[in-house]
Every structure is written in structure tokens, then in C-alpha cells.
């Protein structure tokens, strides 16, 4: 099986790939912790969150494959596209780092994910509204958990506080991308498929400010935000994720069990 390229053009398809790629890449990142977390409870929790995200990926990419109309399944889209074909945010492909860094990344994404899905429940596309209705139930407890842990570690020991502050400063410049819109977004917003990404910002800001304050962490005042010309552009980390995730299907095309 050769690599799949999904041509850009249809804003609905583009939107579905973006949602699916975010949950896929982050779900895979979290699965890297399985068997390696500091405590057993966290191992189980993070594996469960990973599982939810990969489950949601199947819904988004499954729909994307239908919209594309070339007979590609969610699995085909996950395993056979190259890095340049992925549309996920730079934030979710960042390395796990310390456990605190993983939790900070999770919190910054969960807050966006939650408010995005809440709005997508009212999408003009019925299938998107249904997927969002299902996913938001899961993402609600993802956010509850990451808020709780960010506060506990931020307002924890001197060491955990320092690690969380460092993680926040490292990841902060990647958050701006979640609220940027491009031409595809603009068409999808006009069609009522998705909300304007900028519209999510006030809710996200409020949640982040509230949580980080309680965590005694300082919100970076740095306005710098990583900008990319297109969603197909990634940091070097994505290639390594795909090499790991896609290895089996690339080495043994069509392998099943």
C-alpha cells in the first residue's frame, strides 16, 4: 500500500482531518506513557484518556474517509498519510517531556477541546454535532482531571512548581495556533460547520487564567506565538511519532490480526 495524500479543497473534509489528527496525535503521545508513569493510578488514567482520544479519532477520520469518497477507512488515513498530510496542532505533537510537561500540554489542549466541542454540538452538520455530543462527555472529565493535576503540581512542592512553570513557558507559544483561522476555517465558519476559532479564546483564557492562578503559576506575558503558513507544516517531532505509529502498516502493508 502506498502513502495516501488527501487533497485540500473541501473545507468539511479539511475540518474533519484537523479534528481527527489532533486527537490521534495526542492520543498516541499519551499512549507512550503506558507502563512508564510515576504512579499506577496515573498509568491507568492516562491510558484511558488516550483510549478516548483514539476512539474519537475513529469517528472523525471515519467520517473524513466517507466525505473524501475514495474508500479510505479511518485506519487508512491514520497509517498511510505522511507527516505533511497531517493537520494537527503543533502543541499536540510536542514531546512528552516530564510528566508535568505532559499534564500541562494536556490541560492547554483539553481547555480548547472542551469549548470547541461544546460549540460543535450545534454544528449545522448533524453528524459533527453527534460526534461532538459523544466526545464532549469524555473531554469533560479529561479537563476536570487535568485542571486538578495542574493545580496540585503547580501548588505542590518547590520542585513540582518549578517543573510546571517551565512546562508552561515552553508550551505557551504553541497555544496561539489553536485560535488562528485560515481560508478553510472561514468557509467552514460561514457554513455553520464550526465556530470561529477566535470565539473560543475568551472561554479558554478564562479557564486557563483561573486554573493557573489556583496553581500559583505565572502566565507568560510573552506574546510570541508559533505561526505556520499551513496546517501541513510541523515540527520535527511529528515524523518520529509517525515512524513509530505507522511502522507496522508500512512494513507489512494490510497486516491484520
Amino acid at each position: 500500500m502506498t502513502a495516501i495524500t488527501v487533497k485540500s479543497g473541501d473545507p468539511l473534509l479539511e475540518f474533519l482531518l484537523r479534528m481527527g489528527d489532533n486527537s490521534l496525535v495526542l492520543g498516541h503521545r499519551l499512549s507512550e506513557w503506558c507502563g512508564h508513569t510515576p504512579v499506577l493510578e496515573e498509568d491507568i488514567a492516562i491510558a484511558n484518556v488516550s483510549l478516548d482520544l483514539v476512539g474519537q479519532t475513529q469517528l472523525w477520520l471515519g467520517f473524513a474517509g466517507e466525505v473524501e469518497g475514495k474508500g479510505h477507512s479511518a485506519d487508512n488515513l491514520a497509517y498511510l498519510r505522511d507527516a505533511g498530510g497531517f493537520r494537527n496542532f503543533l502543541l499536540v505533537e510536542q514531546p512528552n517531556g516530564s510528566y508535568g510537561q505532559t499534564l500541562m500540554r494536556q490541560f492547554l489542549f483539553d481547555a480548547w477541546h472542551y469549548y470547541m466541542l461544546r460549540r460543535l454540538e450545534h454544528s449545522s452538520d448533524r453528524r459533527i454535532a453527534e460526534i461532538a455530543e459523544k466526545a464532549v462527555k469524555e473531554v469533560t472529565y479529561h479537563l476536570e482531571r487535568s485542571v486538578d493535576l495542574v493545580i496540585r503540581l503547580g501548588d505542590g512542592t518547590q520542585e513540582s512548581h518549578a517543573l510546571m512553570q517551565e512546562a508552561l513557558e515552553l508550551l505557551w507559544p504553541y497555544t496561539g495556533q489553536m485560535f488562528d483561522a485560515d481560508g478553510f476555517d472561514e468557509v467552514a465558519v460561514k457554513a455553520g460547520i464550526m465556530p470561529d476559532p477566535a470565539e473560543i479564546r475568551p472561554d479558554w483564557d478564562a479557564q486557563v487564567t483561573r486554573t493557573l492562578r489556583a496553581a500559583t503559576l505565572e502566565i507568560p506575558q510573552e506574546a510570541f506565538s508559533h505561526k505556520v503558513a499551513a496546517r501541513s507544516i510541523h515540527t520535527e517531532h511529528l515524523g518520529y511519532i509517525l515512524a513509530d505509529m505507522q511502522f507496522l502498516q508500512r512494513a507489512y502493508p494490510g497486516a491484520t490480526w
Binding site: 483510549l51 482520544l53 476512539g55 474519537q56 469517528l59 459523544k134 466526545a135
Partner: peptide
Amino acid sequence: TPTYSGCP
């Protein structure tokens, strides 16, 4: 209907 979307 699925219980959880990622339910194995």
C-alpha cells in the same frame, strides 16, 4: 450505541 468512543 457505544458506551465510550474508545471502548475496546
